[in-house]
Nucleic acid binder design. Sequence first.
DNA 1: GGTGGTACTTGACACGTTTCAACGATCGGG
DNA 2: CCCGATCGTTGAAACGTGTCAAGTACCACC
Lengths: 340, 340
Amino acid sequence: MNIKEVARQAKVSAGTVSNVLNKPEVVAPATRKRVLDAIAALGYVRNESARMLRAGSSRTIALVVLDIANPFFTDVARGAEGVAEAGGSQLLLCNSGQNQRREDRHLDLLEQQRVQGVLITPVDDSHNTRLDELVARGTPVVLVDRGSKRRDRCSVAVDDMLGGRLAGLHLAERGHRRVAFAGGPVSIRQVLERHDGAAKALAESGAELLLFETDSTSVADGRKAAAAIAELPATRRPTAVFCANDLVALGVLQEMTRRGVRVPQDLAIVGYDDIEFAEAAAIPLTSVRQPREQLGRTATELLLDEVASGERHKHRHIVFEPELVVRASSNHRRRTRAVT
Amino acid sequence: MNIKEVARQAKVSAGTVSNVLNKPEVVAPATRKRVLDAIAALGYVRNESARMLRAGSSRTIALVVLDIANPFFTDVARGAEGVAEAGGSQLLLCNSGQNQRREDRHLDLLEQQRVQGVLITPVDDSHNTRLDELVARGTPVVLVDRGSKRRDRCSVAVDDMLGGRLAGLHLAERGHRRVAFAGGPVSIRQVLERHDGAAKALAESGAELLLFETDSTSVADGRKAAAAIAELPATRRPTAVFCANDLVALGVLQEMTRRGVRVPQDLAIVGYDDIEFAEAAAIPLTSVRQPREQLGRTATELLLDEVASGERHKHRHIVFEPELVVRASSNHRRRTRAVT
DNA sequence: GGTGGTACTTGACACGTTTCAACGATCGGG
DNA sequence: CCCGATCGTTGAAACGTGTCAAGTACCACC
């Protein structure tokens, strides 16, 4: 079932059928109708491969995320979707699951499909050969949620150092002198910067930040970190926990509640991302909000601009500012004690 | 940068390059090496459009979900991913956002791309012309999380009536005589069956189920339903709430906690889906667990079988059984009172 | 030295579309 | 009655790949 069949049925040439589909205004109304009728009668569907082969590039862009089950990324995806659709491109969602091999495989297949461009949160943003090749061969790439100074690609990110600082200042202001940081691994730059931002802010008021590193940023790892914290002797126990993301924070909250620790009276908790479930937790979580949908929208706009402008496009590195949302989980003023 | 460039560089014909890529064993080792070197030197990447055009069909399958932000669907996606990858197909994730127009548009584009098949939770499963056309023209389709008796496609679903029944029996056994159902709209078959299953089970012990219909199954709507329930006069107030899904249940939990209602002592809550956040809630949610990843895996297996077997394939309708997971939010025995 | 066989390699075609130069028909103006 | 212009339509070529019949070179064997 191809364009020639339609042409035969409508008693015109293949070129005319193509014109009806792509430049209807150049075809005489009567002919156009005959062709459209034939298309409907035969149930003809365009062959995108053939169009693409002829055109040289597709009409799709891809978003490669680290973890499809993390609400942070699904919100980024929703932001990207809208812009892509408005720009006439289809958005393909791919999940690397934090696995370099799977990420590479996705990039291979996407490049073979000649996608217009790729939005990606790479597993490893410093030594990513596969990604560098992709860029070098001319596929537009925008880094999402990863700051960068590279001249050959755009990036959109959120200032993680500032996010950490906001959390640190908030906890210091509420009278906390000893705070735990739960999350990891710290080899991930995001995690490290959030930690460092908070540590610096706390140090300014003479408070300290203790690192409880986890294997990943999941609910289960949050529970583990909470157990480690709760088992410290009372005198050395932190009075607050700042978590690398909300999944970890939810794990901490759950484990602490299970152990009868009152939140926020005995322990304050601050998360990161402000996913929907942060507010919906039975003790609503204080969290550092990232403009997730905005991140997706802006990244897609940058990508589509590069696709449209080609050589004229100027690569940009956009950094958004996070925002602290104070909720019940940390909203309690601690009586300041003498430092031991 | 095409196969001919590579051929020229390696001083062979285009056909030989193609053979190196597709049937390396028929090419002499020395020639093969020359070609592979040329490919590496030029950074050649296969053109999938041309392959597909030649082959007639692609190597991708699509999963079209109702809401990418609902953890239920992301878990289904993870199940599907694994099987697709093992079968050598790439999985494309598309989001309809419960919007029929967007679903139709995705199906248009997917059919134009000649995907191998489509896994879909349709917005409307009774009068879906676009989907019927797709099937009629020969694209394999598997309905996900939607029961069906249709002879022209497979389906995988979970027994919602039974899920409702499990929740109803559990609450009746815990001594509840008046239970609320929160969720909607009831025009969605899933929601209605969960309600009916619970209503029937409760009726068997002389208890009743009051419907609090919502516009959709989101956290925000759960909060609204909770407000409506809490404002009933004490004598008519239910002692338990069964929710159409966990998002609604989290909303109910949050609003009730805010109002000082103790869960589960004053009010028991049962959710549906058993998403990760159900267990991670500060008061862990009792929930009806659906085998989400299993759903994705089985659906993909059925699809790949149809792709491979063609005419020989027998369409099947698989129904899984849900399972009640009892946690703190309902784990409290109510003192039975005389019925008023 | 010829025959048959084996091991590679080649060249041309087909897939379905878009594009574009060229062609044909129609018509108004001179 | 012819010319030029305008409007529609056509046919062929190209996009990059896979396939396959046909070809070449080499070798062993009689």
